[in-house]
Every structure is written in C-alpha cells, then in structure tokens.
C-alpha cells in the first residue's frame, strides 16, 4: 500500500511511480491468486502418489523401532493411513474394527499408520489405550500431514498400495468389509 501512496504523490519521477504502482498491483493480484489456488486444493485421489508423512511416533507406538514415520520406508507394504482425533465422535465408530483388522493382517505386509490430527496429547494416549490400539501411531499437532492430504475432517482413511499409490480414499468411518475388499485385492 505504501508504494502506491508514494508513487501517486511523487509527480516528478512519474515513470518510477507508475512502475511501482504496477508492481504493487501485480504482486497483490499474484498473492491473491496464490491464496486462491491454495484454498481450492483438494485431497489426493486414488491413483495419485501418496505424499510422504514424516512424524514422530507416540512412545510405544513406533514402527519397527524407528522414531519417525516415513511412507517411503514403508514401500513394499500396503499402508492404511488413518487420520483420527480423540475429540472426534465418528472415529470411535471405526477404532475397534481398525485394530482388529490390523491384528488380522499384521503379518501380511499390511501396515496401519494412525495419525492423531491436531489432538490433545494426553487425550490421544487415553484414546489409544481405551480402544486397545497397538498399531503405529503418531501425533500431528501442527497439521502438516493433514495439509499434504488436504483432509476436510476426521476420520479420513487413505489406503496406499505397495508402490506408494493411493488406491482408496475414505471420508468418514471405514468398515471392516470395505477394508477387506481393498486389502484382499492388494495382498494377493
């Protein structure tokens, strides 16, 4: 804004003034355009490569002794990426089924990766204990993973194949039947 003021009042060096005004207008529009593009981004769809997720695990919920999650290191496995929150009511619907399914496929090259989306840490632990969840889980308090996946709410589940491609996107709770349908087609 201040550039505009200067250039309008500065009459002597008007060509500089015009340049400054144009620069200000164009950069403002560019900023706005960037903001618009950012706000209209949508979540990756089935068929797209899954963005990497690097988050520090909860203590006791690590994957193969690693401290930080990495989808890239998990390549070769089917990854069930589940966003949840302790304050989310619908997440409670699927929590038990997810854990049961994990137990079922633990040795089939299927990795469950839970992400506690912008949650309150002690409550997250409480939630994991309440549902007896044992699969790897990591808190995403800053919402960085959520931003990459552009989730619009919790729960949301992304099923990723051995090559790191998203094969299924589930908004809202997912059921064992849906999980099985996708997992069976991938691990055969």
């Amino acid at each position: 804004m201040s550039e505009e003021i200067e250039s309008t009042v500065e009459k002597k060096s008007f060509s500089w003034g015009s340049a400054a005004v144009w620069a200000a207008v164009i950069s403002l529009l560019a900023l706005l355009g960037f903001g618009l593009m950012r706000s209209t981004e949508t979540r990756p769809e089935a068929g797209e490569t899954a963005p990497n997720v690097e988050l520090k695990f909860f203590d006791g919920y690590e994957w193969e002794g690693r401290g930080v999650s990495s989808l890239e290191e998990m390549r070769g496995n089917v990854v069930i990426l589940n966003f949840w929150s302790s304050w989310c009511v619908e997440c409670r619907v699927e929590a038990k089924e997810l854990e049961m399914n994990w137990k079922l496929h633990e040795d089939d090259g299927v990795i469950y990766l839970g992400i506690a989306h912008v949650d309150v840490e002690p409550k997250s632990i409480g939630y994991l204990e309440e549902f007896g969840i044992t699969y790897p889980n990591a808190p995403d308090l800053g919402g960085t993973a959520a931003e990459k996946y552009n989730i619009t709410g919790v729960p949301e589940t992304f099923i990723i194949d051995q090559e790191g491609t998203i094969v299924h996107v589930q908004l809202g709770p997912i059921s064992t039947r849906q999980l099985e349908a996708v997992i069976q087609s991938l691990i055969k």
Binding site: S85, S86, W87, V118, D119, V120, E121, K123, L141, G143
Partner: peptide, 23 residues
C-alpha cells in the same frame, strides 16, 4: 483453537477446546 477459525480457546464451545483448556 487450532481446529476452528479465529476462536480463542476461552470461548470456544467444542469438545476439543474443552480438552485444551484441561491441558
């Protein structure tokens, strides 16, 4: 509140905010 827009925690009415106040 990290999950709602422009709402300070002291007036926010969601469960998540109650949890943060407890924290």
């Amino acid at each position: 509140c990290p999950v709602c827009e422009s709402t300070p925690l002291d007036v926010c009415q969601t469960q998540a905010c109650a949890d943060w106040r407890d924290l």
